[in-house]
Write a protein that binds this DNA or RNA. Structure first.
Lengths: 222, 222
DNA sequence: GTCTATACGTTGATAGAC
DNA sequence: GTCTATCAACGTATAGAC
C-alpha cells in the first residue's frame, strides 16, 4: 500500500522514473517466476513441472505466468540459458593461472561452491543432460566442446612440462565435473546418508578440501 | 496361430506344461514391457514417460500393459527394484578382499562395467535421486545407509593399518560413485564431446583404467 | 499488467467384446 | 490373455473483463 502510494506520487513528477518502475515490476515478477521455475523443474523435471505449480510458488496467477513467458518450453529454455551462463562463469577461474596446483584448486573450489549455492540449477542441468540434452545439445556441440578442447590443451602442456602426471585430460576433467556436481545433484541422497541432515558450512568446507585433495592426487600433485 | 493351436493341443495332454507355457508368455511380455519402460523412463523421466510410448516400444497395446502393471507408478517401482538389485550386486565385489588396491580396482571396474552395460538403468536411478528419491528414499535410509557404514568401517581400518592415506571415507566413496556413474548418466554429453561418437570397447577400457588410477591415487596407492 | 473462466489436447486407466 | 473404444482427469494456453 505504502509502496503503491509512493510509486504513484513519483509517477506524477517523473515520467521516466515511472517507466523504470514498470520495468522494475516486470523484472521483479520475472525473477520470482524464474526462481520458482528452478525449484519446480529441479524437483519434477520438465514434463512433471506444471505452470500452475510454478505460478503458485511464485505467488502469481497462472495466466500471469503465461503473460511473461508464452509457453512452458520458453520458460525452461530461458532458465537453462541463465544456468549455462553461471556454469561458464564458474569455469573461468581455470584460465590464466599457470601453475596447475593453483588452477585446479581454484577450479574445484569454484565448482564446489556452485554446487553449494545453486544445487537446484545444477539439478535442472543434470536432468536436461540425462534426458539426452534436447534443448542444450547444440550448446554442448559448440561452446562446451570448444571450452573442453582448450582446457585439454592446457592440461596437455602441463604434462609435457612435467608439472603433472601423465593422464587422459578429458577423463580428468570429467572426474572434476562429476565429483563436484555430485554434491548438488545427489544432495538428497547425501543428506539421507548423513543422519538426515544437510552439511553445515564447516562440514562442507571439509568435503571441499577433501575433493581438492583427490583431484590434486589424481594429477600427481601432493 | 500355429502357436495357439500347439498350446491348445498341449493343454489337452499336459495341464502343467500348459501352465508353464502361459507363464512363459507372461514372463516374455513382462520382460518386453520392462525393457521398454527402462528406455522411456530414462529418456523422459517418470512424468514424461507415457504408458502409450512404453507399450508401443514393447510392441503391445496400451491396455495390455495395464493388464500386466495396473498403474504406471507400479511399473516404475518394479523397474527401480530391479535396478536396485543390480546396484547391490555390483557393490558386492567390494567385500571379502583384504587388500585395498585389489578391492578398489575390482569395485571401480564393476561400477564402470555397469555404466557401460546398463546406462539406461543408471539414468533412471539418477533421475529418481535428483528429483528427491520419492520412491527409493526409504531404501536409501536403510539398506544403502547400512552398506555405506560398513564400507566406511573397512576403509577406516585400511587407514588405521596404514594401507592407504588418511582420508574421509564417505567422500571417497562418493567420488567413486560419481566418477563411474558419470559415464552412464552423462553419456550423451560425453558422446557429443567425443566427435559425436560413443566410445569403442577399447576406448572405454582405457577410460576405465584411467578412472581406476584416479581412485587409487586419491587413496595414496600408486 | 492482472486475473477468472474456459477451450482444447493429452494421458492414465477401464469396460467389455473376443 | 488380447485389444478396441471410451472416458474422466489433468494441464497448457488463451479470451476477454477489469
Amino acid at each position: 500500500m505504502k509502496m503503491k502510494e509512493r510509486k504513484d506520487s513519483v509517477s506524477k513528477t517523473y515520467v521516466n522514473k515511472n517507466k523504470d518502475q514498470k520495468e522494475i515490476v516486470r523484472d521483479s515478477n520475472q525473477k520470482k517466476i524464474m526462481a520458482a521455475a528452478e525449484v519446480i523443474f529441479a524437483r519434477f523435471g520438465f514434463k512433471g513441472a506444471t505452470t500452475e505449480k510454478i505460478a503458485k510458488l511464485a505467488g502469481i496467477p497462472k495466466a500471469n505466468l503465461h503473460y511473461y513467458y508464452k509457453t512452458k518450453a520458453i520458460l525452461y529454455q530461458e532458465l537453462l540459458e541463465i544456468i549455462l551462463n553461471e556454469w561458464m562463469e564458474a569455469a573461468e577461474v581455470f584460465d590464466n593461472i599457470e601453475e596447475p596446483q593453483l588452477a585446479l584448486t581454484k577450479y574445484v573450489r569454484s565448482k564446489m561452491q556452485y554446487s553449494r549455492n545453486r544445487p537446484l540449477a545444477s539439478k535442472v542441468w543434470a536432468n536436461e543432460i540425462i534426458h539426452g540434452a534436447p534443448v542444450v545439445g547444440s550448446f554442448l556441440e559448440t561452446t562446451l566442446k570448444q571450452w573442453l578442447n582448450d582446457r585439454v590443451e592446457i592440461i596437455q602442456s602441463w604434462i609435457e612440462q612435467g608439472k603433472i602426471h601423465s593422464l587422459d585430460p578429458t577423463a580428468f576433467i570429467y572426474m572434476i565435473w562429476s565429483v563436484t556436481q555430485h554434491y548438488a545433484d545427489f544432495e538428497q541422497q547425501i543428506e539421507i546418508l548423513n543422519h538426515g541432515e544437510s552439511y553445515s558450512d564447516e562440514e562442507y568446507e571439509l568435503k571441499t578440501q577433501q575433493v581438492v585433495k583427490f583431484v590434486l592426487a589424481s594429477a600427481g600433485l601432493n
